[in-house]
Design a protein around this nucleic acid. Sequence first.
RNA 1: GCCCCGAUAGCUCAGCUGGAUAGAGCGUCCCCCUCCUAAGGGGAAGGCCAGAGGUUCGAAUCCUCUUCGGGGCACCA
Length: 588
Amino acid sequence: MKSHLQELVKAALHDLHSAGVFDFELPENITIERARDRSHGDFACNIAMVLAKPARSKPRDLADKIVAHLPASEHLAEVSIAGPGFINFTMSPAAYHAVVGEALEAGEAFGRSDVGAGKRVQVEFVSANPTGPLHVGHGRGAAYGATVADLLAAVGFEVHREYYVNDAGRQMDILGTSVWLRYLELAGEELTFPVNGYKGDYIWDIAADLHREHGDTYRQLAIDVFNGIPVDEPAGGDKEVHIDALIMQAKKMLGEEGYLLFFNKALEVILSDIRKDLEEFGVVYEEWYPERSLVSSGKVDEAIEQLKKSEHIYEEKGALWFRSTDFGDEKDRVVVRDNGVKTYFASDIAYHWHKLARGFDRVIDVWGADHHGYVPRVKAALTAMGDKEDADKLDVLLVQFASLFRNGEKVQMSTRSGSFVTLRELREEVGNDAARFFYVMRKCEQHMDFDLDLAKSQSNDNPMYYIQYAHARVCSVLRQLDEKGLSYDRASGLANLQVLSESHEQDLLRSLSRYPEVVETSALNHEPHQLAHYLRELANDFHTYYNAHQFLVDDGALRDARLTLIQAARQVLANGLGLLGVSAPESM
RNA sequence: GCCCCGAUAGCUCAGCUGGAUAGAGCGUCCCCCUCCUAAGGGGAAGGCCAGAGGUUCGAAUCCUCUUCGGGGCACCA
């Protein structure tokens, strides 16, 4: 509907332009908005006020001219000029009735569009280090990223969902070493577990597996393992130095093969757990991209070479620095440490550089808001290696923290103790549907209070149940047809939509017609919450209608029309919930 | 100190990228099942859009400053 009106206004403007009324360039985009107030019609256009100045004309006079040049359209019932110079459009009943037919005919495809056709977009999200199970913070990134990706796909983009696996680097070494130490304990050694080691139960599980499979093959005496290792923090030492020394010790005592056994086992177990967790959450990826492959394929070195070519690299205090301040970063960044080890940032530069080389038109990263300081340096690197245009292809969406609330109190989370709330625990407690819905109900830059009790409650307090219930109610009504011995004929329903004269029916039709617009703006703005809010409004329209009128009436034509209308509503509810990764139950 | 995000009804939040009289839900109060699931619906009350300037036909929305929350400022990942 909206795009139709834009075409009409555009045509009128061109008409006026060629008639010589305007001597300036016509605007590319014409804003058409839904009128907030019904008395202003269905849509409003502010173009006359926008162009009043360049046209050296009063807004209302200009509006008069535009209206006079509007092409005729069967979808338009009325056009009027109001207020300071708004052009208000009222759509014809036929325009709304057409939506019902479209929704039923297109089915699951209704609401999809092709505005993104021909464009490839990559969405990278979650990408949590594979050092333990996903926790509730990752959950928000997962739900948000997956929904943004699905929305983009719905409006025609070719979407590539990717998980960057940080399977190289120090954190992974700490993980492998932690598993080995637990293995030693299971083998009967007594030792003091490092403060900085990973302490979760899952580490014990992995160690137990290895001990079962390999017995005491990799056992060493604790006294030997800790011999010469600088003391840990509780003993007055430095926990970082302590753990680094233990890693070196593990590598030395286990040999490359033995060390890799522990390292890879830990990685494999945890990664497959993460993968399973996400799959159960309805989140699937086209690709799991390992950091190790970047290193082994030489892409990290290539990236550093490329940076050197760009002459934004210098050496100082034995380290190699990228002069990111040339591109607006607040300080320069180390790429290769004085010990010759490349930083995580180096991998990340290579990774993002390679992303662009893979030919995506847009690259989206979904990050936790705590990584915001990282954005300027990554963009700086991309600018240095290519140009500003490359850097502009990267969109970093920062997701703020989510706090869980139970019984009105904040649930404390701590990774330190290893007793954090995992995504899996959350899913088991409130269900996948509620988790997916609640995570995207708020826009991503908003801090979120996740109310566990509300997510579980089966009442209209809970917006997800409210929406699902509307869907189930339509299904229930259709089931009653047989029981009541009544018939339904869709063709008759579509042909008789003009009998739907009740205000509740008008409201529902109006809401249904908005759906394609909502999907598009939600997708292009990366704002799934808009869709969530829309669905609540649509469900409200339906419930109100349900309470005010009987659908299974004796009048056949009216019954067919009403059932056709609510089936269109059911389709839109199902499609919208589907895009959010939430099920649309047929009965509740 | 610097950077990012937020501040809208008692509470949790929308507000369609600058539009017409600021909207929902919850909570409070009143009302609606001999009727397709009351897991529902209707109504009332509730606001100096944190504060102060600015930009223009027009500001909750854009800019500056201030105040208060949250997060971040490594040769960690």
